[in-house]
Design a protein around this nucleic acid. Structure first.
Lengths: 248, 248
DNA sequence: ATTTTCAAAATGTGATCACAAAAATCAATA
DNA sequence: TATTGATTTTTGTGATCACATTTTGAAAAT
């Protein structure tokens, strides 16, 4: 039995998870609906690996934690399960899916395929101005890495990739890319808990140079390397070790 | 302003859409929750192109049509919007996304990439028995085509692809493949409304032969051809013509 | 004939409640 | 001590209601 994120325990402070929900209330733009807000907060927490796989979420618990009611929280949970971030068990409990070495391998392979495709489809549309923006994001990320600020570096890395792919005005792949990021989130959390410092690989300059030359193959190759040598670079044995340590 | 699927109109029988919801009540397995059932029915309707793009759905209208209440219907709609099947407008209206020639092109390209990947990842796992099942499904599809039974042929075609991809026990891509199918659904509806007979391309035998030889590249090639010469085979001019006819 | 104004109807949203199923707690038993 | 069984609590689910916003439809004005 995993732990629960429920009212009592949460209020008693026995769980570390509420901390996530409480600590990062995210600013809520005016006009944003409650279910949207709940969706964003939970999504954020999962994306950065703050919710451990196997931990089951309770609707009432979350509702209480973010001072709302079951209805909008349920909608948020349904969306997240459709996005692959959460899994609904037979007993209707909802939890973050457990990670396995096989699943991890599938996720990395899929991420590479998806993002190479997205990058190729953007090459023909991206402007010099947008490429300059990529340079700026990459620079900011380097600074975050130098300061060992994992969270910021991670966010900037995502922004780099998102900016590239959305250069295609008809792009429809971003939700799927984000779904893979979401599904990799829990592993990130595990890795960060057991590894002193995340080691970042940065093939962004390579991608930028290829973009300037409009070389589709080279762009795809850089993106592939960025993914496979980055988070995908964990060796199988290391992954299994990590997952065992984390009690998966 | 598009038409609405609302209580009054639905009951007045002015809309063709309720027919879809009423005609195919789908059997509801015991224990299936209401929101799950609503999700399945709407999904089915969208997948086969029964709901026209631009038509906006109302929560109460659907709830009334399937004799339930707003709560579970809203959950179903949220899921479908996360799956890319529906779009939430700024005024919070929900509708089937409009199709454009550009979006159609993106969908076909993505479908090809996704399914080639899925097929490749299945080659190493699929058993001879499963390949035999593919043969049976393909045969049934041929019969449906011969009888000009579009709906059945479509369903069997999906089953063929699904059976192939799910041969990989760690497969995680199916939800994304289905998302693309869903997003192509409305175009299918348009095409079927304006074309006398859907013309089916069948590269399945080619795929089966390649699977028997465990030839990954050949499998991917067959899948690519199946998609690009099938639904993807519409010429740009034909697509734009169709969309104009449909008032997109 | 077209546009503007305004009251009525419809709609999305979220809180609350009741019910059934599942989980947890605790006492009794082996 | 470990296990079973019954009671209590927690939880998911869906219907209903109230509120604010949007849309609609008709009347009035241009």
């Amino acid at each position: 039995m995993g732990t629960r994120i429920g009212i009592g325990r949460v209020l008693a402070g026995q769980e570390g998870t509420l901390a996530v929900l409480k600590l990062e209330p995210l600013d809520r733009p005016e006009g944003m609906t409650t279910h949207e807000y709940a969706h964003r907060r939970l999504r954020q927490a999962i994306m950065v690996g703050s919710i451990r796989p196997g931990e089951s979420l309770t609707i009432r618990g979350i509702a209480e934690a973010m001072e709302s009611s079951p209805t909008p929280v349920r909608e948020a949970l349904r969306r997240l399960s459709s996005e692959g971030a959460l899994k609904v068990l037979d007993n209707r409990r909802i939890m973050v899916p457990k990670m396995t070495a096989e699943r991890f391998g599938e996720l990395i392979a899929l991420r590479s395929t998806l993002e190479q495709h997205a990058a190729r489809r953007a090459v023909g549309h991206i402007t010099e101005k947008q490429i300059d923006r990529l340079v700026a994001i990459d620079k900011a990320q380097d600074e975050a890495i130098a300061q060992k600020d994992n969270a910021t570096a991670l966010l900037l890395n995502q922004e780099f990739h998102r900016t590239l792919y959305t250069a295609n005005p008809d792009q429809i792949i971003m939700p799927m890319v984000e779904s893979v990021w979401l599904q990799l989130g829990p592993f990130l959390g595990i890795a960060m808990a057991h590894v002193a410092q995340l080691y970042f690989v940065d093939r962004h300059q390579e991608a930028i140079a290829a973009l300037r030359k409009r070389d589709e193959d080279a762009v795809a190759s850089a993106i592939n390397a960025d993914i496979c040598e980055g988070i995908g670079g964990f060796e199988r044995a290391a992954i299994e070790n990590l997952l065992r340590l984390a009690g998966q």
